[in-house]
Amino acid sequence: MFEVFFPILFLFVLAVVIALIMSGLSVFIGKRTKLGKKDEPYECGVEPVGNTKEPVPVKFYMVAILFILFDIEVIFLFPWAVISDRLGMFGFIEMVVFVVILLVGYFYILKRGALEWD
């Protein structure tokens, strides 16, 4: 089990190490100034007013939901890809049917204008 996943583990460790190096370097090398004006978003601009956490419009949520639904489609493509050579033409047709059904949903989204911004 371990031998099979060693490259993935290596990749994980590499990613963590690189991220640590990058943020660590800025901590150690960079100069830090703790001043009142430095902590404001715009040092020499408009005075900040109100909370930075504005409610996000529902259309972002809409995109997120549609993303999840197509993401679940991908999860089905993944095992299919693993054995698609053994499934042959039959498996291909199966997957085409699956994708075409979801494609109807995609066309519907386009026609309905659900992805239009305003």
């Binding site: 109807v104 949903g105 066309f107 519907y108 026609k111 309905r112």
Partner: peptide
């Protein structure tokens, strides 16, 4: 249902 979804909004 497919036909309604695709053509319904044209």
């Amino acid at each position: 249902a497919f036909i309604i979804l695709i053509i319904g909004y044209t």
